[in-house]
Amino acid sequence: MWRDLKSVFWAIPKGLSITFRYLFRKSVTQQYPKNKPVLEDRYRGLHYLTRYDDNSERCVCCGLCAAACPVDCIYMEPAETEDGIRYAKIYEINELRCIFCGMCEEACPEEAIFLGHEFEFAAYERDDFIYTKEMLLANYDNIEKERVAKNIKPLIRKERQEFKTPAAPLGH
């Protein structure tokens, strides 16, 4: 009976000692939303559509991102400007369906679509998660442009069709 009393008596201090030990340790809890998490460079968050240096959209609506997407969350309709440049008349990503795998980013031949660092885009309605082209461009213009400038996902081509210079006449 005395042995039982001893274990009962020391049980609480033994448990509390663990608590006290951890009380003065540094906590690993992040105080979100006061402290935002530090994300790696290649973190895959909300998409953004990039622009060239002259502010024209990069996306030519080729359809490769939609074809690469494993969950079919991208819908697009191409169109043509008066100068004969192909662009996306409609470009929508269903962010709820998206699994943020980054296949679209890898497939894009024009460096047009990337996944950025935004993850705070909660909304109340399902419809608000269909991100249109304007919203994705706005994401780039307002937020991601600065991050890109810091070379987090650097863009290699600076202007449209750099490779398409006419050939100098040969042999003259």
């Binding site: 100068d83 398409k164 210079t165 006419p166 050939a167 100098a168």
Partner: peptide, 18 residues
Amino acid sequence: GENKIRFIEDSKNQKFDD
């Protein structure tokens, strides 16, 4: 590694690739 031939003009004074 050279430049590619590009046809952009034609006799109807069109100046596009298409």
